[in-house]
Each structure stands twice: as structure tokens, then as C-alpha cells.
């Protein structure tokens, strides 16, 4: 059977051509090259094996070897993943990449081990901003009364509520129709997702609040990990790290092409002064930071902001 071979099964909810899927594919090639074909990876893309929460559980059970997920669903498993998911904790993509490449990133990856997951590396998910069907958002006042879709996560709900809008928890696949029919006024996401979900057809105002830089995380099942020899563990770790620059190049290209498509479709895009948003946001952080360890991580993240 396939699980008896050394080709790792990997799950991803993004489509086949998405940078995260391509990166795990590339990781598989690196593994094959570096072990003379003993190891490899096979990605099941498009969420065909389940949504992120489901595949995460399956990975901890040892039913899948690798899993690429967003950091947000890890919040309900390990509280130390919360700091990198806070709104406005990162000021730019560079800040996010620098922090995650350093000891803060490593510490958070290591915290997953007690939950049966080996954190291998971070991938990018760019910046998330709000889009809606009413008009451009310039300041938090423009968000009053907007019904904005959020994923079913306490952090997103708290964030949108703190900004004065009405958070509507809703599964992603109901969003397009709900936007078109006016059940909701908008949602928030990064450039590539706004493009691939085509939500801009129904919500043509994209306001660059860049409130979240929540990264993607590649995890391995601890059960599969423990079966590897010390040398193979080394190869695995190194290959995962080596897939990160590859992924970031793909990501930057993908973001640029999505931006082009969205602008060409006539979507009104505006930049936003983050100051008033940041002020409202930092007030809600304490609701989600309950341990000294989390506070410590946040301080170390903020210390790495460019002055």
C-alpha cells in the first residue's frame, strides 16, 4: 500500500497551482534528490481530503504525513500560535518573514510537538485586507454597520467587532452567493484568494488595511516523524527550510499577477492609514493573550519592527 512506501502523503486546501502546493511538491523533489529516491511527497490539493481543521486532526492521528495549514486553525490546538495571528502585530511582509525565520518562529514551531505535530517551516500568506460591496473603507468609521464574513474563529470575530462592524461567521463556500444576494456586505482576504474565489465580482471595493499577515505552516505527523532515521530527519528539516525561498518567490509572483487581474477587472483599490485601526486592535489583544509566554512572544515580535 501507499503508506508502506516512503512517499509522504500531504494535504492542502488550496488548488494545484497555488504556491503552497507547488512548494510542497518541490519539497518532495528535494527529498527524492537528497535520498536517492528513497523519500518523496505526494500532495492531495484542493481540500479533497477535508478542510484544514479535519486534516490537522488526521495528521496528529498519523493518517496523513504532511499538512499545509494556515496558522489560525492551530490556535484552538496550541495557544502559543496566537501571537503571530494577531491583527497588526506585523507591520509588513518583511517584518513577518524576519520574525518567523528567527527564534520566535522556531519557538512556536517547537510548541506543536506536544500535540503530535512537528512544525517544519512557515510559508507566506501575504496580507489580508477588507473588501466589500458598499464603498471604500478609509477609516474605522466607514466600517460601522457593515456585515463582514469571518471564518469561525474567535480572533476574527473579536477583530471585526472591535472595528465596529458586524462579524458574520460563515463557511467560505457560501461567501460568493451571500455577497451577491446581500446577506453580507464584505469579507477579508489576501490578493490571490480574492482573485481565485472571484469575490470581487460581487464586492468591488478592496481597501488595503493589511490587518493580518497570518502565515501558513507546514506540519508533519509526529507518528510519521518518529519512524524516520536521524539522518532522514535532518534531510526532512533541511529540505523543508529550502522550500521556503522557493515558495516566497512563487508567492510574490502570484500576488503580483492576482493584483493585475483584480485591477484589470475594475475593482476600486485604496490604501489605508493603519494608525486608527492599529489603536482599536491592540486594545483587543489582551483578550487573547492569557499567558506570560504569549506576552513575551508578542514583545519580541514588536521589537523586530523597523523603527
Amino acid at each position: 500500500g501507499m503508506r508502506l512506501s516512503n512517499v509522504f502523503t500531504a494535504a492542502d486546501t488550496h488548488p494545484t497551482d497555488y504556491p503552497t502546493v507547488q512548494a510542497v511538491d518541490y519539497l518532495g523533489q528535494l527529498l527524492a534528490e537528497r535520498t536517492g529516491g528513497r523519500l518523496g511527497a505526494k500532495v492531495y490539493a484542493g481540500g479533497q481530503l477535508g478542510n484544514e481543521r479535519d486534516t490537522l486532526e488526521i495528521t496528529t492521528f498519523g493518517g496523513l504525513d504532511l499538512n499545509r495549514v494556515n496558522a489560525a486553525p492551530l490556535n484552538s490546538i496550541e495557544p502559543l500560535t496566537i501571537p503571530i495571528c494577531l491583527p497588526f502585530v506585523f507591520g509588513s511582509v518583511d517584518h513577518m518573514r524576519r520574525t518567523l525565520d528567527g527564534d520566535v518562529g522556531e519557538e512556536i514551531l517547537a510548541s506543536l510537538t506536544r500535540h503530535g505535530l512537528i512544525g517544519l517551516c512557515y510559508y507566506d500568506s501575504g496580507a489580508r485586507s477588507f473588501y466589500n460591496s458598499r464603498g471604500p473603507i478609509q477609516s474605522p468609521e466607514d466600517m460601522k454597520g457593515l456585515k463582514l464574513r469571518v471564518p469561525g474563529s474567535d480572533l476574527y470575530i473579536g477583530m471585526v467587532r472591535a472595528l465596529g462592524a458586524d462579524p458574520v461567521p460563515m463557511p467560505l463556500d457560501e461567501v460568493y452567493q451571500s455577497l451577491a444576494q446581500g446577506v453580507i456586505d464584505g469579507a477579508e482576504n489576501n490578493w490571490p484568494s480574492l482573485e481565485s474565489g472571484r469575490h470581487y465580482e460581487a464586492a468591488p471595493f478592496y481597501s488595503l488595511t493589511e490587518h493580518l499577515f497570518t502565515p501558513e505552516v507546514l506540519v508533519m505527523s509526529k507518528i510519521s516523524w518518529d519512524k524516520l532515521s536521524p539522518e532522514d530527519k535532518q534531510v526532512m528539516r533541511r529540505s523543508a527550510k529550502d522550500s521556503v525561498p522557493y515558495m516566497r518567490n512563487l508567492w510574490d509572483a502570484r500576488e503580483a499577477s492576482s493584483r493585475e487581474v483584480i485591477l484589470a477587472a475594475g475593482v476600486e483599490v485604496n490604501t489605508v492609514d493603519p494608525a486608527p485601526f492599529t489603536e482599536l486592535m491592540t486594545g483587543m489583544w489582551d483578550e487573547f493573550l492569557t499567558t506570560p509566554q504569549q506576552h513575551d512572544l508578542v514583545e519580541r515580535i514588536l521589537a523586530q519592527r523597523e523603527s
Binding site: R3, G50, D54, F61, G63
Partner: peptide
């Protein structure tokens, strides 16, 4: 194919 039974129940 050596997949834990608990996965079937979770699905």
C-alpha cells in the same frame, strides 16, 4: 494501507 481506523470515524 495502514491508515488508523480513527481516521474513518473522524471523517
Amino acid at each position: 494501507i495502514d491508515i488508523p481506523m480513527v481516521v474513518a470515524i473522524q471523517r
